[in-house]
Amino acid sequence: ANATQISREVYAVFRLFLLDQNKGNYLVLQEQNERRFHGMKLDWGFDQFLSQKVFTEASNGFLLDDTSVFGAEIFVCKERSTCKGEYLSMLKDAVMYKHVWKIDNFSKLDAEFYDSKTFISGDQKWKIQLYPKGKGNGIGTHLSLYLALADPKSLPPGSKIYADITLRILDQVNARHQFGKGNFWFSASNPEWGWWRFITLGFLSQAGMGFLSKDTCIVEAEVTVHGISNAL
Score class of each variant (00 low, 15 high):
A1V: 15
Q5E: 15
S7L: 03
E9Y: 06
E9V: 15
V10P: 04
V10T: 15
A12E: 00
A12S: 09
F14W: 10
R15M: 02
L18K: 03
L18S: 02
D20P: 01
D20A: 07
D20F: 04
K23L: 02
G24C: 06
Y26W: 15
V28C: 09
Q32P: 06
N33M: 07
E34K: 13
R35W: 03
R36E: 08
K41Q: 13
F46Y: 11
F46S: 09
F49T: 12
L50G: 03
L50V: 15
L50E: 03
Q52F: 04
Q52A: 13
K53D: 14
V54P: 04
F55A: 06
F55E: 11
N60L: 03
L63P: 01
L64Y: 00
L64W: 01
S68D: 05
E73T: 08
E73Q: 15
E73F: 07
F75I: 07
V76Q: 10
C83F: 12
C83R: 14
C83I: 01
G85W: 07
G85V: 04
E86P: 01
L88M: 01
L88V: 12
S89L: 08
M90Y: 05
K92S: 15
D93C: 07
V95Q: 14
K98M: 11
H99T: 04
I103A: 07
I103Q: 06
I103H: 11
K108P: 01
L109F: 06
D110H: 07
F113R: 08
F113T: 01
S116A: 09
K117H: 11
T118Y: 06
T118R: 13
T118V: 15
S121G: 12
D123N: 12
W126D: 03
W126A: 07
I128H: 09
I128Y: 08
L130F: 08
Y131G: 05
G134H: 08
K135L: 06
K135W: 07
I139W: 04
T141D: 13
L145R: 02
L147P: 12
L147D: 10
L147H: 11
A148Y: 05
L149Y: 10
A150G: 15
P152F: 14
S154R: 14
P156Q: 03
P156C: 00
P156R: 03
P157G: 08
K160D: 03
D164H: 10
D164C: 14
I165G: 10
R168M: 12
R168T: 10
D171Q: 07
D171T: 09
Q172M: 08
V173I: 14
A175N: 12
A175I: 07
A175G: 04
R176M: 00
R176Q: 12
R176D: 09
Q178Y: 02
F186V: 09
S187F: 07
S189C: 11
P191E: 00
W193Q: 02
G194S: 08
R197L: 03
I199D: 01
I199A: 02
T200H: 05
F203W: 08
L204M: 05
L204Q: 05
Q206K: 10
Q206G: 09
A207D: 13
A207K: 12
A207H: 05
G210K: 00
L212G: 02
L212S: 04
I218H: 00
V219M: 05
V219T: 10
E220F: 00
A221F: 01
E222T: 11
V223P: 02
T224P: 07
V225D: 05
I228G: 01
N230R: 13
L232S: 08
